[in-house]
Structures are given as structure tokens and as C-alpha cells.
Design a protein around this nucleic acid. Structure first.
Length: 837
RNA sequence: GCCGGAGUGGCGGAACUGGCAGACGCGUUGGACUCAAAAUCCAAUGGUGCUUAGCAUCAUGAGGGUUCGACCCCCUCCUCCGGCACCA
């Protein structure tokens, strides 16, 4: 059994070093103005109970970077916590009768154990859990600050309502337009009073500040956010209604230049003036019925894009303010109530939707923009709308202007004549944060009959979520049935009052959590601004692309609000963002519901966490999706075994040797084997360092380190023709470079080599160009771009000397016989290309 | 429909700034060790052809272009993935 001692035993090694790290507080970091900081963060996980290799990939990337940066001498903040409010806990309670807190906390315990089993270098002192009053009281605090500044407000708004459950449904609980529990019951829209945060006040800033993010954020995330904000420039134009002087219809358009082509005015079925317009029209009952059905259709957002266009003539006419023309007013199912003014002008010749609508209802098509190039368009021959810019035709005084000029002039004229004005609209809407759910942050206001809505004062925070609430999933918001909670006294007049029973969207919790990490247990403020000042902005944020929009826009919004509150000074919370790819199995993302989860714990038990981490980094570049393969991970296990045996084999001889620092290697006296291996080491070091600093191609870094290992291995026995102090350094460099990826085994190997003290305090080695430089190059020789031979040349030869060498090569010379050399291209150290005729 | 991203061996992938396509790993095949197996070690491994120690030739989704030279740049097209989707 003695020979077993020399075997790599990940379970023993990993437990050993995790214990040492924990005892030393090796990864605790505190603000220290004397040192440069680095804040690296993985997105806050939801405690579902299972950690699979998808999570581990995310954390392995972050941990490798954190460890690398520590070795580079930076003060690294690397925290973790739990996004622990939310619907699943409530569902579990309804299903199994386990209280949400109990379910949540036991999941956190399980997941925390797995994180510890993987030895991630977190500062656990800073752990947060958003469902704890010490955290969510600050959600309430921020809410009150926003309320004071009119950034939080109430308005009536639609919710998903299941008539069977008699309850509000979250969007996730609506499946194909039906309730998740009553699959045949269509969800209805119900209007109730809800809370909103005025994110639209920051629309322009959210858009403009993306310039700051250009360098560090993925292009696609910025594009997605830009589209989400959806700024568009246009004009609002008023159409008078014939015979109804009290009403005017306003439309929003980005193409006012096409207004001479208007064939109708189209209203959303939800347009507020609609009842007055159709009142007293003949056939009112049938009209009402058709309107109702159009309104229903308009609810099913998913089908809208493909739905057939349906219209209804109101019997009324509008007057085109530019031409004075009388055009019919229609209701159209494709006009959105929530965007612009809820009404549009219908220009069939120059808008595809209007084109289709006009075709169906036989509205006239009037060509008012002519193409600048190609054959001129004819109204009676158009098969689709012409939506490009061009030159105005048949447009009264604007005829002949190009589209951009026409837009400018017509907008100005509309403004001068008082029937229109330039307007910018946004797709972004205010953030509805009310949830008629239990497991979330209570919104800290009460309602008094006399005083109305009264905010809870700061000194009464937190408004604690009651824990003894029966969760049935039916009836109103669960909190509404908790009498002890609901019934309270008015904070102004002490009369009987009701508490707000809505809770906050959990995206509120995750919008500012990374600030809390800087000062996780502060009980008199959300954080100390000085600490934030030191650690912010986050240098590197890592997470899934699914958060490209909501979480990342909401947190940008929160940062701007906090800045306007005077708490912080920066505009943007995250300097660099990285979106890692998903881990898949069988072509689908790992998830409990797909039943294709590869458990992290299971992998750690089977292979050890170093192997599991290494594989997640090696199998694909981090930005790409990764298909889990059991054979692949075996390869990494094999490599770590070989590595262990290499060090074990040399440890006894090298333990008491002082390794030569590469800075002091005397090349003049180095043997050729020493030179060869040092050269390989420093070439590897140079590229691995840059992979960690900028490229983030960890898969390539690992491949390079395997190559370096292979080179060492192929030079065995090392002790022949190489001095022990150099051999030791050569092996140490391999161990040091692998540390960010496989920290436990490296600590062990470092110790086996006779070094004392943890690796987390050892500096990343500096690469030396004089050591990595080759003194000979094998250069391919091409003839007309085709590889025809190779020559070995010394470094430092001139281009002419190199090309002459190439010409002298027997094989090349033979091929050149009788040919005319047109020119010779020499790329130093790379290649020679001889162009012949 | 619009906006992104991606297409390279049997597989995951590499190729840094336009310079030897296929590094590294997996798999497969052959060999060594073994009574045997596992593990380990060694070797081979894109296709085709040939006068087969080698050499030629084709090959990075398809077609074209620029260049001495293209996986890389440009144009056209195809496929897949993701986001938004009647946003006026």
C-alpha cells in the first residue's frame, strides 16, 4: 500500500488546503487606500438548492481571475451572496407546506457547502442574503428616498388575473395566455393600483452613458439595452375631428414628411377618446362587440406580430392639418395603446403595416415620396410600401424636398401653426415594482382614510415581513390576509390604517446588492460611501446573457439614483462585463426542469474540484456555450495525475534545493536543455499572462500549459544536463501558472517542492524577453504562396541574407530553375515567399 | 421583419496584428507492461492520389473579389443560435 502514497488524492489535498485558507482568512480583503484594488464579481445566485456545472463554470472563471489578480499584487474583493426572495420559495410552500424562509435557508446552506467544497476564494465575511431584514430594510430605505423625490409613484395598471384562483399571477405563471394551474382558464387583464419607479426619467442618461461602457461591455448587451430604451425622434401632430370640435386626435410619427399620403387615422382599441367618437353612431351594439374582441386580441402580445390586421371604421372623419383633406378614422388592432399617443396616421404607400391594412380595407394609396435612384415608383404598381427616404412629391409646398429636409421643415411649420411639435419617444417604460406576492420586501407605506398614503418613517424600518402567513396560492395577495400585518395605525393621525400588502419585485434587491458587499453589515446606512468610493466601480462583472437587459438596466438606474442622492460619485457601477456561455447537456441548458443537471457536488466527489474547475475552463472559450462531456473531464483528471507524478518524482531531490529565480539565471553558463526549457517556460508565461489580463482565452492558456508540461516531460530525465536549481524553477513556473485554475493541487505541489507559505501570497512571475527569445527559427519557404520547403536560420540575419538562404536551399533551388523571380517577400522570423513567373 | 453572434477533422476546440490550417484535449488504431484486465507509457491519426522512406493535391458553410499570401479583409448567398418583434 506504500506505493499509493505517491498518488494524487484530490479529496485529501482539497480538504487540507480549504481548511488552511479558512484558518488564515486567506481571501478576506479590506479597503486599503495604499493598495490598488480589484473588484471581481459573479452575478448573485438564486438559492434554488442545486448548484450544477453551469454555476461552477461561472464561479471558476471569476475565481481564476480573482486568484490571478491577487498574485499580481492587487487587493481583490471577491464576494458572494444569495438572491433569496422570490416566487419559487412561495410555490414550494404552497406545494409542500414548508415555510419560505425555511426552504430558502436550507437551500442556501446546501449551496454554500458546495461552494466551499470547490474552494472558491470568496470573502465569506461579506456574504449577504436579500431576504434578511438587515438587507431588505435598505430596499425600503431606497424606496422612501425615491418616494420623496417623486421617483416612486402609484398608478392604475394591468396585472395578470386568473378568475379561477381569484389571484394575481406573475408573468412566469402565465403559460400560453392561461393560468399555470388552470391550463384552460384564460388569464384576464385587471387594472389595479401599483407602484412604479420612474426609470424613464433617466432614459437619456442610460442611453448616453453607454459611451462609458463601450470599452468594457459586450457589444450585444449594449445593443440590446439600446433597443430596449428605444429612443426615436419624430413629431406629434394634431388632427381635428370633423363635426366634433371638442376632440382632436394626436398621432406620433417619425415620418411627418409622408403626411400628404395619409389615408386614414388609426386608433388603438384602447384609445381614450374612442367612446365619444362612436357614441350615437348607428349599429352601436355590434360596434361595441367588435371593439371588445379587438381589445382581447390586443392582449396576446406574443401573437401580435403575425396576427391579421383587423380594423373598424368609427364613422368619423379627421382633417389633415397640412392638406385639409378629410380622412376616415378607424380603429386598428395593431395600434399600440402604450406607445406614442395610441394613435397613428395611416400612410399605405410608405409603411408596410399601413399598406397591408389599406389593401384589406380598400383605402387609397397615395405616393408622396419618390425614390432617388432606380426606376421611379408608381402607386398602382407597388407590391409593398416604400419605406426609404427619398424626395417628396405631391406634398404641396414641400414637394421637391428630400425626406430629411421635409421632416425638419414640416415639423417646424406644424409647431409654428400650433398643430404639432417635435417629440422624442421611448420604448422604455417606468418600472412596475408591485408584486401581489408574499416572499418579497414589503413596500413601506400605510393607507389612512384621512391622511391617504403615508410613508413609514426611517426610524421604523424595517417593515418586517410577517412569517406566520398561510400560503394557499388563492385569494388576494397573501399579505392581505395577515391581519396582524395589515391592520396598523396611521403614522400621522394614529387612526386605523392599512399597510400596503404588495411586495417589491426581486429585481430591486439585485439592483444594488454589489454596493452592500463593500460594507455588508452596516446597520445605520446601506453602506459607507467611503468604502464604496474605494472599491467601485466593479472592475469585472461576470454572468449570464439572460441578464443583459433587466438586471443590468435596473442596476444602472439605481446607481444614478444613488448618485443623485449624494451617496456616491460615479455614474456607472460596472466597468467591464463578461457574459459567459451556458453549460449544456444534450444540447440544452442545464436546469432542473430539463432534468439534465450535472451536479457540482457529484463532480467534486468523483474527480475533485480542481479537475472539475479545470475542465469547465478548458473545454471551450468562456464566452461560448459548452457541451458537457464525461470523456473530456477524464482528460483533465489525467493531466493533473501526470502533473502530480512529475512533481512527486522530483520532489525528494529538489526539496532542499534553492530554486534559481529566473531573474538571476545566468544564460552564458546554462546548458542547452536548461535554455530550451526556460525558453518554453517564458514563452508560455508571456502568453498565459496576456490571456489572463486581456484575452480571457483560458482554454488556450491551459493548452499552452499542457504543452509546457509535455516539453518538460519529453526532456526527462531532467537531472541529466540540467542543474537542480534550474530544474526546480522550471517545475515551479508550471505550478505557479496553473494556480489560478487548479489552486488546491498547486498549493500541495508547491509545498512538496519544499516551499513554505501559501501560494496566495506568492507573486505571479514576470516573463523575460531575453529568456523567451529563440536564437534560431525554422522558416517556411513558399513559392507563389505554396509551401515548398523550410530553412533554419539564425536570429538577427537581414532580410537579404534570409532570402539568399532560401534561394540556396537545394529543393527550392531546383524548383526555381528556369523561372523568373518577380519578387521575394521576407517576413522576419515568419516566412519567405518567392514569387516566380 | 429588424438587430446581434457563429459556421474549421470522428468530437470539444487552436491559429495573437493578413504569414506553416488543425495546437491542446477527447476518441480511434497499433505497440509496451500484465496470466489477464484496468491504470500507465510509447507511436500513429483531415480527405484523396501517386512513381508511398516521400511527394503532390484538395480542404476552414457556398460562390466571387482584394492580395505575393485569406479561417482572418470586401461583396453575394445559405444554415444555425440569440435578442427584439405591428414601437408608427
Amino acid at each position: 500500500m506504500n506505493d499509493k502514497l505517491g498518488e494524487y488524492d484530490p479529496q485529501r489535498i482539497e480538504a487540507k488546503w480549504q481548511k488552511i485558507w479558512e484558518e488564515q482568512g486567506a481571501f478576506n480583503a479590506d479597503a486599503d487606500p495604499q493598495r490598488r484594488k480589484y473588484y471581481v464579481l459573479e452575478m448573485l445566485p438564486y438559492p434554488s438548492g442545486t448548484l450544477h456545472m453551469g454555476h461552477m463554470r461561472n464561479y471558476s472563471i471569476g475565481d481564476a481571475v480573482a486568484r490571478f489578480k491577487r498574485m499580481r499584487g492587487l487587493n481583490v474583493l471577491h464576494p458572494i451572496g444569495w438572491d433569496s426572495f422570490g416566487l419559487p420559495a412561495e410555490n414550494a410552500a404552497i406545494k409542500n407546506g414548508i415555510p419560505p424562509r425555511q426552504w430558502t435557508n436550507s437551500n442556501i446552506q446546501q449551496m454554500k457547502a458546495v461552494c466551499k467544497r470547490f474552494g472558491f476564494s470568496y470573502d465569506w465575511r461579506r456574504e449577504i442574503s436579500t431576504c434578511e431584514p438587515e438587507y431588505y430594510r435598505w430596499n425600503q430605505w431606497f424606496f422612501l428616498r425615491m418616494l420623496e423625490r417623486n421617483l416612486a409613484y402609484r398608478k392604475r395598471s394591468k396585472v395578470n388575473w386568473c378568475p379561477q384562483c381569484q389571484t394575481v399571477l406573475a408573468n412566469e405563471q402565465v403559460v400560453d395566455g392561461c393560468c399555470w394551474r388552470h391550463e384552460t382558464t384564460a388569464v384576464e387583464a385587471k387594472e389595479i393600483e401599483q407602484w412604479f419607479l420612474r426609470i424613464t426619467k433617466y432614459s437619456d442618461e442610460l442611453l448616453d452613458d453607454m459611451a462609458e461602457l463601450q470599452a468594457g461591455w459586450p457589444e450585444r448587451v449594449l445593443v440590446m439595452q439600446k433597443n430596449w430604451i428605444g429612443k426615436s425622434f419624430g413629431a406629434r401632430v394634431r388632427f381635428a375631428v370633423a363635426d366634433l370640435p371638442a376632440i382632436a386626435i394626436e398621432v406620433f410619427t417619425t415620418r411627418i414628411d409622408t403626411i400628404y399620403g395619409v389615408s386614414a387615422v388609426l386608433l388603438s382599441p384602447h384609445h381614450p377618446n374612442l367612446p365619444e367618437l362612436i357614441a350615437g353612431m348607428p349599429g352601436n351594439n355590434a360596434t361595441q362587440e367588435r371593439l371588445d374582441s379587438m381589445r382581447k386580441v390586443n392582449l396576446r402580445a406574443a401573437d401580435l406580430a403575425t396576427a391579421e390586421k383587423v380594423g373598424l371604421f368609427t364613422g368619423r372623419f379627421a382633417l389633415n392639418p397640412f392638406s385639409g383633406e378629410r380622412v376616415p378614422i378607424w380603429v386598428a388592432n395593431f395600434v399600440l395603446a402604450e406607445y406614442g399617443t395610441g394613435a397613428v396616421m395611416c400612410v399605405p404607400a410608405h409603411d408596410q403595416r399601413d399598406f397591408e391594412f389599406a389593401e384589406k380595407y380598400r383605402l387609397p394609396l397615395k405616393l408622396v415620396v419618390q425614390s432617388l435612384h432606380g426606376a421611379s415608383l408608381r402607386a398602382d404598381q407597388m407590391e409593398s410600401a416604400y419605406t426609404e427616404y427619398g424626395r417628396s412629391v405631391a406634398s404641396g409646398p414641400y414637394t421637391g424636398l428630400d425626406s430629411a429636409a421635409a421632416i425638419e421643415k414640416m415639423t417646424a411649420d406644424a409647431e409654428a401653426k400650433g398643430f404639432g411639435k417635435a417629440e422624442t419617444t421611448y420604448r422604455l417604460k417606468d418600472w412596475g415594482i408591485s408584486r401581489q406576492r408574499y416572499w418579497g420586501t414589503p413596500i413601506p407605506v400605510v393607507y389612512c382614510e384621512k391622511c391617504g398614503m403615508v410613508p413609514v418613517p426611517d426610524n421604523q424600518l424595517p417593515v418586517k415581513l410577517p412569517e406566520n402567513v398561510a400560503l394557499t396560492g388563492e385569494g388576494q395577495s397573501p399579505l392581505a390576509s395577515a391581519a396582524d400585518f395589515v391592520n396598523t395605525k396611521c403614522l400621522k393621525c394614529s387612526a386605523a390604517a392599512r399597510r400596503e400588502t404588495d411586495t417589491m419585485d426581486t429585481f430591486v434587491d439585485s439592483s444594488w446588492y454589489f454596493y452592500r458587499y463593500t460594507d455588508a453589515h452596516n446597520d445605520h446606512a446601506p453602506y459607507d460611501s467611503a468604502k464604496v468610493e474605494y472599491w467601485f466601480p466593479i472592475d469585472q462583472y461576470i454572468g449570464g446573457i439572460e441578464h443583459a437587459i433587466l438586471h443590468l438596466i435596473y442596476s444602472r438606474f439605481f446607481t444614478k439614483v444613488m448618485r443623485d442622492l449624494g451617496l456616491i460619485r460615479h455614474n456607472e457601477p460596472v466597468r467591464r462585463l463578461f457574459s459567459q456561455g451556458m453549460v449544456q447537456k444534450g444540447g440544452r441548458a442545464m436546469s432542473k426542469s430539463h432534468g439534465n443537471v450535472v451536479g457540482a457536488d457529484e463532480m467534486a466527489q468523483k474527480y475533485g474540484c480542481d479537475t472539475a474547475r479545470m475542465y469547465t475552463l478548458f473545454a471551450a472559450p468562456p464566452a461560448k456555450d459548452l457541451e458537457w462531456s464525461e470523456e473530456g473531464i477524464e482528460g483533465c483528471a489525467r493531466f493533473l495525475n501526470k502533473l502530480y507524478r512529475l512533481v512527486d518524482h522530483h520532489a525528494e531531490n529538489l526539496r532542499n534545493v534553492n530554486s534559481v529565480l529566473s531573474e538571476t539565471v545566468d544564460l552564458a553558463h546554462a546548458t542547452s536543455k536548461e535554455k530550451l526549457l526556460l525558453r518554453k517556460a517564458h514563452q508560455t508565461l508571456k502568453r498565459v499572462t496576456s490571456d489572463f489580463e486581456v484575452r480571457w482565452h483560458f482554454n488556450s492558456s491551459i493548452a499552452l500549459l499542457m504543452e509546457y508540461y509535455n516539453e518538460i516531460h519529453s526532456q526527462e530525465p531532467l537531472e541529466r544536463d540540467a542543474r537542480p536549481e534550474v530544474v526546480k524553477r522550471i517545475i515551479e513556473l508550471l505550478v505557479l501558472m496553473l494556480t489560478p485554475v487548479v489552486p488546491h493541487i498547486c498549493e500541495e505541489l508547491w509545498q512538496m517542492l519544499g516551499n513554505s507559505g501559501g501560494l496566495n501570497r506568492v507573486r505571479w512571475p514576470e516573463s523575460r524577453d531575453d529568456l523567451s527569445k529563440e536564437d534560431q527559427f525554422e522558416i517556411p519557404v513558399q513559392i507563389n504562396g505554396r509551401l515548398r520547403g523550410k530553412i533554419l536560420v539564425d536570429d538577427g540575419l537581414t532580410d537579404d541574407e534570409v532570402s539568399e538562404r532560401a534561394n540556396r536551399d537545394p529543393r527550392i533551388a531546383q524548383l526555381l530553375q528556369g523561372k523568373t523571380i518577380v519578387k521575394i517577400i521576407v517576413v522576419p522570423r515568419k516566412l519567405v515567399n518567392i514569387v516566380i513567373r
